[in-house]
């Protein structure tokens, strides 16, 4: 589904991404993890078509990415909701831009809002919602587009611990209900292990390791020893090479 080949992105003289290559299968999930400034958000923006790489290519369904792709949805770290639009209008915006028939638009938005349990907030403005509710609206807006590729930038970084777990459970549930490829960027090891079928560990613009997570998909994973074993493995990968410091 996604083929990243020798991707390089520079900001001035600094290399944000340095010759990055990996592949992600169709309808699988991938968590990209690494410390701040390791280039993970840059990578996500390249996958979204928002940033043009200096060298290398990103192929989605064998097509090289040139700008924004119709079936890719992106959820930004600060949710990217428009403060002047109600929840309903924020969610319907992507459909409106795609010139969808009004009746169909209404039906899709209505069903997605009820699926995410935020129907009662449809006339509210984003500033009237809590962080968790805003994140649900952002997810609703992305899912309304029926994407085959969903990109998320630190989906739970602004949420408290309990809401964070609820949200991660919700993402897993939605993934099971709507088959699509999900790539999420995170700096939380637990989030990466819970939501990533494949875990890409990055540092300083390069990929350190790619781990496969055989336990992905279990909703009770957090209660099992296996979860902590994978977490430990990811932690060790992230720390490897840092011993000299």
């Amino acid at each position: 589904m996604i083929d990243v080949k020798n991707l390089t992105v520079c900001y001035g003289s600094e290399r944000a991404l340095d010759d990055v290559s990996f592949t992600i299968g169709k309808n699988t999930t991938c968590a990209i993890i690494g410390p701040s400034g390791c280039g993970k958000t840059t990578l996500l923006y390249c996958l979204a078509g928002l940033l043009a790489p200096m060298a290398g290519n990103v192929f989605v369904k064998e097509q090289p990415i040139q700008g924004i792709r119709k079936d890719t949805a992106l959820i930004l770290q600060d949710y990217g909701l428009f403060p002047w639009k109600t929840v309903w209008k924020n969610v319907s915006l992507g459909l409106q831009v795609r010139d969808m028939d009004k009746k169909q638009e209404k039906q899709i938005v209505g069903s997605i809002l009820s699926e995410l349990g935020i129907e009662q907030y449809k006339q509210k403005y984003p500033m009237e919602l809590s962080g968790g509710q805003k994140q649900r609206v952002a997810i609703a807006r992305a899912l309304a587009l029926k994407p085959d590729l969903l990109l998320m930038d630190e989906p739970s970084s602004a949420l408290d611990a309990i809401t964070k777990e609820h949200l991660q459970n919700l993402i897993l549930k939605l993934y099971k209900a709507h088959p699509m490829t999900i790539i999420l960027v995170t700096h939380s090891i637990e989030e990466a292990v819970f939501l990533g079928q494949k875990i890409v560990v990055m540092d300083e613009g390069k990929i350190k390791t790619i781990l496969d997570n055989p336990h992905f998909g279990d909703e009770n994973l957090r209660n099992k020893q296996d979860f902590y074993n994978v977490c430990l493995k990811v932690r060790q990968c992230m720390n490897s090479g840092d011993q000299d410091e």
Partner: peptide, 14 residues
């Protein structure tokens, strides 16, 4: 206008 909102708008295909 926050840069994030421009990304958000562009990613919706505006």
């Amino acid at each position: 206008i926050p840069k994030g909102l421009f990304y958000s708008a562009r990613s919706l295909g505006m």
